[in-house]
Amino acid sequence: MFDLDQLFQKSDLISVIIQDVETREVLMLGFTNKEAVELTLKTGTAWFWSRSRQQLWNKGETSGNFLQVERVMTDCDTDTLLYLCRPDGPTCHTGARSCFFNEIPMNGKDDVP
Rank of each mutant, 00 (worst) to 15 (best):
G44V: 05
Q54S: 13
R86G: 03
T40H: 01
C92H: 07
S63Y: 07
V69A: 04
D77P: 07
G44D: 09
G95W: 10
Y83V: 01
I18P: 01
Q19F: 10
T94Q: 10
N33I: 03
K42Y: 05
M73I: 15
K59P: 08
A46K: 09
T62S: 15
M28C: 09
C92F: 07
R24I: 08
T32S: 09
E70C: 07
R24P: 06
T80L: 10
F48M: 13
R24A: 14
E70T: 04
C76Q: 13
G64F: 08
Q54P: 03
C76M: 12
R51E: 00
W49S: 00
T43C: 10
E70D: 14
I18E: 11
F66P: 06
K42S: 11
G30V: 01
S52Y: 00
T78R: 14
E25M: 09
R71A: 15
L84P: 03
G64P: 07
G89E: 12
L67A: 03
T91E: 03
W57H: 01
W49N: 00
E25C: 03
C85T: 13
E25L: 11
H93W: 08
R53S: 10
D75M: 13
R53E: 12
T94H: 10
T94L: 12
L67R: 02
G64V: 09
Q54R: 13
R86Y: 07
M28V: 06
L56E: 12
E25D: 13
F48E: 01
T62W: 11
V21L: 14
T45G: 05
Q19L: 08
K34T: 02
